[in-house]
Design a protein around this nucleic acid. Structure first.
Lengths: 109, 109
DNA sequence: TAATTAAATAACCAATTAGTAATTTAAAAT
DNA sequence: ATTTTAAATTACTAATTGGTTATTTAATTA
């Protein structure tokens, strides 16, 4: 019933949503979801179309808020989305946005 | 399966998450959820502890992304959270944050 | 050991944004 | 008609942040 949104949690929750509120980070999450296996930082940068340093910063952010896990392996570092959380959140919000787009379309014709 | 996160949607989705990624706007949403009835802008500002101009701007933002509806009535304007979307999102993320807090606590003792 | 590859960090810039105080618009009440 | 009340808007400031390039750290390979 979302009474769970207590005052002490508000900053952490807003931090998590802020992490989700950036196009580059959403592209990273989509890349990780689509891959269905851990991706190295280089692979993430490649697939999401980001520079190396930029991908590094965004991945650090996603790990910090707990949306992505980090697994070093030799020279590289591999990342995975935290499931089912990430998929659930995307589903919820994408459904909402799709509905709104549909309504806008209907309203225009 | 979140394949729904197509490129053209990314900007809109990130806009929605950005709207959620602010403590003041989360306080507004919590106020509206707790009230269980529409609140005037003045009431929102009062309950959430925000100035009038600030509440006005944040409410405009929440309406723009479709998380809150707006209903003028005489002199005043009343606002309601869009259900079940808002409650569902809060539940999902609050659950995640609670779990992480629990894990941190366990790790410390 | 030297060279290479992968990721993290530092320094910096441009753009966005949350907040405030003050003003304006518009409806309600006297 | 005047006053009062509620909300929107404007102008401004301080802080945050997404992006870049260049450098550093650390592990692998030759």
């Amino acid at each position: 019933m979302s009474h769970q949104l207590s005052n002490p949690m508000i900053d952490e929750v807003s931090g998590l949503f802020s992490a989700l509120g950036d196009p580059s980070r959403l592209k990273i999450l989509r890349s990780l979801l689509d891959a269905k296996e851990p991706l190295s930082q280089g692979a993430v940068a490649e697939v999401a179309g980001l520079s190396q340093a930029n991908a590094s910063k965004h991945l650090t952010c996603l790990v910090r808020v707990g949306l992505v896990t980090r697994e070093p392996e030799g020279n590289a570092v591999f990342f995975s989305p935290v499931l089912p959380l990430v998929a659930d959140i995307c589903d919820l919000v994408c459904g909402h946005v799709s509905d709104r787009a549909r309504h806008t379309y209907k309203a225009l014709k």
